[in-house]
Design a protein around this nucleic acid. Structure first.
Lengths: 389, 389
DNA sequence: ACTAGAATGTTCTGGTCGAGAACATATCAG
DNA sequence: CTGATATGTTCTCGACCAGAACATTCTAGT
């Protein structure tokens, strides 16, 4: 808290204004200079100057004015440069996914590398390294700002150190450092659900909201992340809000975290598979599968899972008082089957003023979520200080 | 999130720098100009200018250099002005307390007005109004910036509306508005534990920490507040983190919040009174009373209560990953009896990396907590923009 | 087609602010 | 009493944004 980012000379204003303009075209898409003037409250001359600087740095491109303009001189449209990109990596149970994400959030060149058993940290980094090597041609001419990795586990944000990733069995693996060494790119890492929360907050279902709690249900458990004021909240270690380990039932099963009756042990993907009678199921297909299997038994199961989820959400809402809860993975699918079951159970446990304004929605980004969030890690420095510090 | 506080012209820098200097002398006490230069990183000439502006506005006073200076020209010491004050009000179960709090956090003119049954909102405001009237002489010559109230219940921070205060039976009482009308002062209100968290974070046990979770145990239940990055986290309604209503035991007692087995129903002041065989007990005397009553039965009770508290804290730590947990009221007293009982129970339920850096401490401000926190509400506008917007 | 009006880009000037150099001043050590 | 040191004071400079004045390009109406 003490060595705070000095906000001093006029340079700082310049930096902040450049950041605002670049962020705007990154997050909200191309915008005319006139639009930027209105949105930022800056004067026309200042916007012209700022956009000029950003264009000179190759970060934005001014294009033809929108075809259907109103009266008045047409205002050139400022686009994010297609050549400025970051690489997003998602480490999952059964595969590593990787993609190139540009300023503006466009996802390109998705690659998926599957494996049977989760590889060691070093092996994972080597896999990623080879995939990045393979992109060399596709990336020629692009300015690659860095590489970000989404890892299921406790990740120390500041240094990209994976403190523990239970499913892969990683302990204290300096993933960011290893990735930087292998690829020669600036590298970052964070918890997968944290990055999912970031992506949904900036580009997905939480767009424009000041606060949200994101929960993702997958084969490896329930991860969660929080965004307050559009940012990750300040915390001691930068760990994600571990709502998967919030108490749901003290007499429940033992959890690998050491406690018992965690949300993650009570609401589980494998239970869902059992009920559906399936061995494997892609998270994208859960909704379809649920609809096909519709029956009283399945309905009852879904209702029961949603009621347990509501207990976990109660704690989340009491803690963060968020504007919205965003549900991803199979949690989103369960919710969409019986939204009222969850909402009723939640309302019954919340003080009315807390429940009133609360919105529960399903995540909007699907499986690109991780790639976008991870790449965003590598874009952040640029967005904060577009002309470099 | 959209109509963000425009950070534009050079005026904004001036405002931010004035704010930094004033905040420094407010929070960290008088400081020489040389010290301010070092702490802020601003140049000598700028600091001279800033301090000059603040002095001209009557917000700070330059005093004689510290007696034991080193070599070199002595640097005048900048003190917060003693004439700039705010009124802090604490609404409690059995009394209203009120005090004048100056820039710098000094508490003066404490007044306590006791009652048998909690009065209505209107009656409470009238009591406060009379107490303020009575301070007229003491306040002559002072610049009273406003009045802040700490209320046990859900308070909408933005407008100072008490959504529900269960013990007083208030529902949707616009306390801030009523206080402003009665006293003619700018008025603010917030949840009591939220303000306790703010006070402990700025002036108490959480000084210098970037994040903390504060829990206060009193006769009316368990309140809690969170500070992240030295500020209240962004949330939908500005409600405090209601950790008193985090789940501890689903088979526990019904809570007035609608759920069952809340921390607040499982860890209770009246249970403590029973064990101690007392009818009434001031929160300040709990530690002494516990020590007098020491016995295996009391020890066992304390241990049991601490273990339940640990379950609630587990949820808090998983949610916020704070640097410290600060315990106030009887929770602080229980903790100080058997710190290891709580810490062991907590560690057993937390993933090691989360537990590692976590610190649990007893609050440092005692019952001035509320008054300081409440007054701070009224000082905030000045601290954010010292020369007024 | 032509013109008026509107919205926007462009250029230039001015005001605010902080940095830093040069100089002035007050203390300490010997 | 003198030199070294730290700090206050004054002045100049450059960075930055606002706003005025002017230029440009579109739409709407005739």
């Amino acid at each position: 808290m003490d060595p705070r980012p000095e906000r001093t000379g006029s340079r700082e204003i310049r930096r902040a204004n450049l950041s605002r303009v670049l962020r705007h075209v990154h997050e909200d898409g191309p915008a005319s200079r006139a639009e930027l003037t209105r949105r930022t409250g800056l004067s026309r001359s200042t916007i012209a100057d700022l956009v000029g600087s950003l264009e000179a740095a190759g970060l934005v491109v001014e294009g033809d004015p929108a075809a259907a303009g109103g009266v008045g001189r047409p205002s050139p449209v400022v686009h994010p440069s297609a050549d400025v990109v970051a690489i997003g990596v998602g480490v999952e149970l059964d595969a590593v996914t990787l993609a190139v994400v540009g300023l503006g959030g466009a996802v390109e060149h998705r690659i998926r590398h599957e494996y049977e058993r989760e590889p060691s940290a070093a092996a994972t980094v080597e896999i990623v390294g080879r995939l990045v090597d393979g992109l060399e041609r596709a990336l020629s001419g692009s300015r690659v700002l860095g590489i970000g990795a989404a890892v299921p586990g406790l990740v120390s944000t500041a240094d990209g150190l994976v403190r523990m990733a239970p499913h892969a069995g990683w302990v204290d693996e300096p993933i960011a450092q290893l990735l930087a060494a292998r690829t020669g790119l600036p590298a970052f890492a964070d918890n997968d659900a944290n990055l999912g929360a970031a992506a949904e907050s900036t580009f997905g279902a939480g767009r424009g909201l000041a606060s949200l709690v994101y929960l993702h249900g997958g084969p490896s458990g329930i991860g969660s992340g929080v965004r307050l004021g559009g940012r990750a909240p300040t915390s001691a270690n930068g760990f994600a809000a571990e709502l998967g380990h919030t108490l749901v039932d003290p007499r429940g099963e033992a959890c690998r975290c050491g406690a018992t009756g965690c949300l993650e042990t009570e609401v589980r993907f494998d239970l869902l598979l059992d009920v559906l009678g399936q061995e494997r199921l892609d998270l994208r297909d859960v909704s379809a599968s649920l609809r096909r299997a519709a029956s009283p038994a399945v309905d009852a199961f879904v209702a029961e899972q949603l009621r347990r989820l509501a207990v976990g959400l109660r704690n989340a809402v009491n803690a963060f008082d968020p504007e919205a809860i965003v549900l991803g993975g199979f949690l989103g699918a369960l919710f969409e089957e019986q939204p009222e079951t969850l909402l009723d159970a939640l309302r019954a446990q919340l003080m009315p003023p807390l429940a009133e304004s609360l919105v529960v929605v399903r995540g909007a980004l699907g499986e690109d979520r991780l790639l976008i969030g991870a790449a965003e890690l590598a874009l952040r420095d640029l967005l904060d200080d577009p002309l470099g510090g």
